[in-house]
Amino acid sequence: MDWEFISTNIPLYREAAVLTVKIGFAGILVAILLGLLCEVIVYCRIPVLRRVVAVYIELSRNTPLLIQLFFIYYGLPKIGIRTDAQACGVAGLAFLGGSYMAEAFRSGVEAVGAAQEESAYSLGLSRMQTVRYVILPQAFAISAPAFVANEIFLLKETSVFSAISLMDLMFTAKDLIGLYYNTTESLALLVVFYLLILLPVSLLGSVLERRLRYAGFGT
């Protein structure tokens, strides 16, 4: 191990990690909103849009992020839709994540069950109140583990961003390997920095899961 190489290049990795986290979180946030929107459309049985959501979910779940990014970043500008690499990263992550988030919402809402909904109506709650006070809190508790799993999945997926020339962790590592040939050190830094990003989220996930299980919502 060349410790001097490691210490001089830590700032580069830190910068790259910040970029990964920034785009990752922005993408995940948009994905959650998109997923929520999809679930609302499906739940409320809005005609036409429902079909659009169904097609979107199939397209997004059955294609790899790398291909989606290539199409957004290199393909779309040819028909006049031009964006910078960062916006593409966010858009790609949101396109991929939206369907996973929608599925997480859906499984949560389905798990709450019709009995809860009917009981709420018979108590005189309006539709909005039922959704707001009865369904959503329980659905969220049930699907929380799936959410965290999706977040980890999406954060891991950000590793392909280097393909659209974003200077993320993979890009930095590959660059350094090409420049200095310090393969072992560059890869060690890469692993450490990914662990720094992913381990806290993963730990948070297991804590959350345990807590929610104690809370015993729904089931």
Partner: peptide, 8 residues
């Protein structure tokens, strides 16, 4: 295996 991105 799970914590690391497959690309890594």
């Amino acid at each position: 295996i799970r914590i690391m991105p497959q690309l890594v």
